[in-house]
């Protein structure tokens, strides 16, 4: 019985759980990220063809797993320069609050690393 409660609580509290957070992350991704990173997160957004540095594909598991959640949070909040990447990735820390950035990080993890994440 305790195990069932523990698993239920873990599922409800996990940032990667499917639910309101995930939907929020997906909506925010559509609004702020797809222009460059693509509607499917493959890095081929509508702006990408003219960009001097290509946006990261968020569906490449290996590359994305090389980044910690903290790094993803930081690059969204403070921009590409904060992790020695391109300044074409802007800092969204004034536009988005921390809860929203966390929701985006959770969505990125879904895109890269969960089955059907980029649908």
């Amino acid at each position: 019985m305790r195990a069932v409660i523990a698993i239920t609580l873990f599922t409800l509290l996990s940032p990667l759980s499917h639910g309101a957070d995930d939907n929020q992350g997906k909506r925010l991704y559509t609004m702020y990220c797809t222009q460059c990173h693509g509607v499917h997160g493959n890095g081929l957004g509508v702006n990408s063809s003219r960009m001097s540095v290509q946006p990261r594909s968020h569906i490449e598991r290996e590359e994305m797993m090389a980044r910690s959640d903290e790094e993803l949070f930081k690059v969204i909040q403070q921009g590409g320069k904060s992790i020695d990447k391109s300044n074409l990735m802007p800092a969204w820390g004034d536009n988005l609050n921390e809860e929203e950035i966390s929701a985006l990080v959770a969505h990125l993890r879904q895109l890269c690393c969960e089955e059907n994440g980029n649908e």
């Binding site: 222009q35 460059c36 957004g45 003219r50 300044n87 074409l88 802007p90």
Partner: peptide, 19 residues
């Protein structure tokens, strides 16, 4: 180059993003 505005904005018809 320095501000990266052209990721999203066009400063001429043949340079810059589309969103």
């Amino acid at each position: 180059k320095f501000k990266g505005c052209d990721a999203c904005h066009q400063d001429s018809e043949d340079n810059g993003g589309f969103s």
